[in-house]
């Protein structure tokens, strides 16, 4: 495989992996604090439509990204209110958020279907992207792609190298103890949930402003669920979230290449590969039960009653 073939392949994998990585990074922080928000799909769609509409109305990509992030946060705040303040079941609240988000995004976006938009610009000058070999892979991306790398690195640093990260993990692992020491469990979790919403919103904006620059109903097509699965896959470790997103993206792209190359296997089976590979890798890395228990937030999905 020469680099003329390899470079576009890598670019395609990056494009597939980026929205998954953005959303999974946010949800990782949410889950590390002990909250399971299954509403990623709904938050992504709301981020996608608000980013698109804002960009169309104002012409400003900065405002579009801000809008997408804030919309994601607003959606997650709704979830947070239900699950953290009213102590509603998190699994069901997250699913309800997805139903709500799918409907609301369609309602908001009804008049914006079938309109083109200039995509989010590449961050670096074109000259850099024309550098031989590494140019396109390193310098031909937009802000959100770089953000996806920065965010996962930042989240790793935050979780494992800062006091605030330690508190967040403590809240996720043993909320009663954290409460007893004097940390505000609900506040920490709410903030973590908002961060997750913001990142999901940006992941949606990546769909409507970069990946396929347009708005169409339900355009996330299940990517929120994949992002959710990636965190379990990664056993709640930032490095593995990154690897997982790229592994999934790579297999999704490579199966298309295999088809194009005329591989004689029914396309349905090739289409299964990303999902089967995810299971297989999870099985391999999950065998060490102790290490998973170290990383999985012990209180995930459980409601916290301050005086219980």
């Amino acid at each position: 495989m020469d680099h003329a073939y390899l470079t576009p392949l890598i670019l395609a994998i990056i494009a597939t992996a980026t929205p998954l990585l953005l959303a999974a990074t946010g949800e990782l922080v949410t889950e590390k604090s002990g909250v399971l928000n299954l509403g990623i799909e709904g938050m992504m769609l709301m981020g996608a439509v608000s980013g698109f509409v804002t960009a169309k109305l104002t012409g400003s990509m900065v405002l579009a990204l801000v809008a997408a992030g804030l919309t994601g946060m607003a959606m997650s705040a709704l979830f947070g209110f239900l699950a953290l303040v009213l102590l509603a079941n998190q699994v069901a609240s997250g699913l309800a958020l997805t139903i709500f988000g799918v409907g609301l995004s369609a309602l908001v976006g009804a008049n914006w279907v079938g309109q083109p938009i200039d995509p989010l610009p590449v961050l670096f000058p074109a000259a850099l992207a024309e550098l031989p070999l590494v140019g396109p892979v390193l310098f031909a991306h937009d802000f959100l792609t770089y953000l996806s790398f920065g965010a996962i690195a930042g989240v790793w640093w935050f979780l494992y190298r800062t006091k605030a990260g330690l508190i967040l993990r403590a809240v996720g692992d043993a909320h009663d103890s954290a409460h007893a020491i004097g940390y505000n469990v609900v506040k920490v979790r709410f903030l973590a949930t908002l961060f997750g919403g913001c990142m999901s919103g940006l992941a949606g904006a990546y769909l409507s402003l970069v990946y396929t620059p347009m708005w169409a109903e339900n355009m996330s097509a299940g990517r929120g669920w994949i992002a959710l699965a990636l965190i379990v896959f990664a056993t709640w470790r930032p490095g593995r979230v990154l690897i997982g997103a790229y592994l999934f993206g790579a297999i999704a792209i490579l199966q298309l290449h295999a088809q194009g190359a005329g591989l004689d296997i029914p396309a349905q089976f090739l289409n299964m590969l990303p999902y089967l590979a995810t299971i297989l890798v999870l099985v391999i890395i999950s065998r060490d039960a102790v290490r998973i228990r170290l990383n999985a937030p012990a209180c995930i999905g459980k409601a916290f009653h301050p005086a219980a």
Partner: peptide
Amino acid sequence: YDPGKEADAAKALIDQ
């Protein structure tokens, strides 16, 4: 209908 997947398929075909 899955804009992302359709885009990926187009890229793969162009690459080939």
